[in-house]
Amino acid sequence: MESPRSAATPDDRSPAAGSVEVTVSSSPKFWPFAGAGAVVGVLAAMFTALAGDPGGEFTQGSVFGFFAVVFGLAGALLGCIVFLVVDAILRRRTRRAHAVPLDDGGVTR
């Protein structure tokens, strides 16, 4: 009788013939982090502009515009820093695996 674990299980550490050693890792996308940081910065600018006392020299719209640029850039910078931290954490979790090419039976697409 054959055991439930056959010789071709994924736990087998010996590489199959024709297999290629690959590095498997995950990496976050850069732009969602930078964009989310910029959006948080603009939201902080909105709250700052609305919480301030309107002066005679500047309108709330112009104050919001100024703060939106400054806080948006600072938020994008912080988003980039968070991206670098998350990328460094995920880079430590890389592992090596063996990839075996599949035979598609001569079918071309």
Rank of each mutant, 00 (worst) to 15 (best):
M1L: 14
E2H: 13
R5M: 15
S6R: 11
A7E: 15
T9G: 14
T9V: 14
P10S: 06
D11A: 15
S14Y: 10
S14K: 10
S14Q: 12
P15V: 01
A16H: 02
G18N: 05
V20Q: 03
V20E: 01
V20M: 05
S26A: 11
S26D: 06
S27R: 09
S27Q: 07
P28S: 10
K29M: 10
W31R: 06
A34L: 10
G35I: 05
G37I: 05
A38T: 10
A38D: 04
V39D: 02
V39R: 02
V40E: 02
V40D: 01
G41W: 00
V42H: 01
L43G: 08
A44I: 05
A44V: 07
A45P: 01
F47G: 13
F47I: 10
G52R: 06
D53P: 13
D53V: 15
D53E: 15
P54C: 12
G55E: 04
G55I: 07
G56P: 04
G56T: 11
G56F: 05
F58E: 13
Q60A: 12
Q60Y: 08
Q60R: 15
G61N: 11
S62G: 10
V63A: 09
F64R: 00
F64C: 02
F66I: 02
F66Q: 02
F66H: 00
A68P: 03
A68E: 03
G72Q: 04
A76R: 01
L77M: 07
L77A: 11
L78Q: 05
C80A: 14
C80E: 00
C80Y: 03
F83D: 01
F83I: 06
L84Q: 12
V85K: 08
V86S: 08
D87M: 10
D87Y: 06
A88G: 14
I89R: 09
R91S: 14
R91W: 07
R91E: 10
R92L: 15
R92Q: 15
R93I: 10
R93E: 12
T94L: 07
T94K: 11
A97E: 04
A99C: 05
A99H: 01
D103H: 15
V107K: 09
V107H: 09
T108W: 00
